[in-house]
Design a protein around this nucleic acid. Sequence first.
RNA 1: GGCGGCGUAGCCAAGUGGUCUAAGGCGACGGUUUGCAAAACCGUUAUUCGUCGGUUCAAAUCCGACCGCCGCCUCCA
Length: 491
Amino acid sequence: MQLYNSLSRRKEEFIPVKEGQAGVYVCGPTVYGHAHLGHAKSYVSFDVLVRYLRYLGYATTYVQNITDVGHLTDDGDEGDDKLAVAAQKEKKHPMALAEYYTRSFFEDMDQLNCVRPDISPRATGHITEQIELIQTLIDKGVAYEANGSVYFEVAKFEGYGKLSGRNTDEMISGTRVEVSPDKKSPTDFALWKKAEANHIMQWPSPWGRGFPGWHLECSVMSMKYLGVTIDIHGGGLENKFPHHECEIAQSEAANEAPFVKYWMHNNMVTVDGTKMGKSLNNFITLKEAFTGHHERLTRAYDPLAVRQLILNSHYRSPLDFSDAALYAALSGYTRITEAVQAVRKALAAATEGDLNPAIQAQLTAFKARFEEAMNDDLNTSVALSVLFDQVRLTHTLLSEGKATQATLHAIDDQFTLLGGDVLGIVKSSYNQAGAGTDDSLVDKLVTLLIDQRQHARKAKDFATSDLIRDKLAEAGVELKDTPNGTDWSLK
RNA sequence: GGCGGCGUAGCCAAGUGGUCUAAGGCGACGGUUUGCAAAACCGUUAUUCGUCGGUUCAAAUCCGACCGCCGCCUCCA
């Protein structure tokens, strides 16, 4: 598999540190608010990476941190802790706030059908390790204590800037924030920050009470769970600098070994063509997208339609969310879903017999094209197009009505494998009533009305049958007449 | 100001030197099917890839200029 490595700026063959194994670390959320569309793009993209690595047979360990301390409102090391600020606003303890939004995050990611990371380490759970790493860096002479805080001395680390393509001179001249007098150089960054007395989140350390700098947690936790050199480190493009640059500096200075083999960065999300900002009134959380409670959305969107929209473009391309784009993705998603449901329904009534070799050959060709696309730096857009080709094949085959159980099984298995296991947009099972309800009363009433409509149709009383269909449609129940009877689904 | 990216049909989007008179999805239109629909299937929908110029036997793909948009350097995945 070829992956684009942000460090080398080109596609490279993926060769893990340990044969047959893959260690993936992805920068997780800072849990001070509900997850939004930007989080969705990032975590769906890396979810597909992890799923595909597993599909290829790599024993994959997926680590994604939860940042619950240290991420400042200002990367110049001068702002307040984001969690502390939000906690004060919501009148909650920072840990309560972190817990609340961590749960919210997992809920949303589950909705998007992202596999849970194997380990979701919290920054606050690794204070000891962070202090140890700081001490190592001081001992090696690349970090210094000043007035209760500890800074990393960038000038002592030769490779600083190799990921983001910046040099320190430019950075100094471009500095826009006021520089702390404690720093030897404006480019130095905080490893440990001295806490004021009123700061709730603080821990004892050899340098007095304080809290860790934001960049440190990723170095410490990736090292702890994946080793000194990890295979893949993923994150958003906006974190390339300074966050990832600082991670490299800390980790490589401490371990004297390469930190990451493959750096992967996903591109950003815009909404209606402009960047998503809290102040721009175009900030859409996932919960808002799933419920439709946002002025820019005309309806609620199935979480997997959001997933489909994300997979429709490449992870390294920017993605513009709009109601129209979401709607288009929903239509496409529905088409795939209905094809899968149709196969499974037909399967129950299919005759026994051999697997149709012509169909088998087409499925094999689809699979090869799918893998070729995914092997090329996770080209999900092309992978998805293969799925649509399989949808067409499926409908054509079903309309002939001659497919054997073995043939339909093969189709279903491939939908489940490629569309389900890898892309995560095909479910292993769907509710009986299509769009789905487990309310048996609704089921009975709709069935009753469908029966009444059938009587009217047989009697050529189309005025009545159409009235029933129209009224049901108004109530959100859509009817479809098929050769085998009438299907219904909730819209 | 510094660094990076993007501009492909009505919309989303893949393709980054020849197989491109450019995947796929959505939408629209025509047809088959249907009592009528819906769904499905078939067909049509970019001789052209922001503009101009250059390199090359050959460019959407490489180079240059220009125009437009976006991101990072401060909040944000």
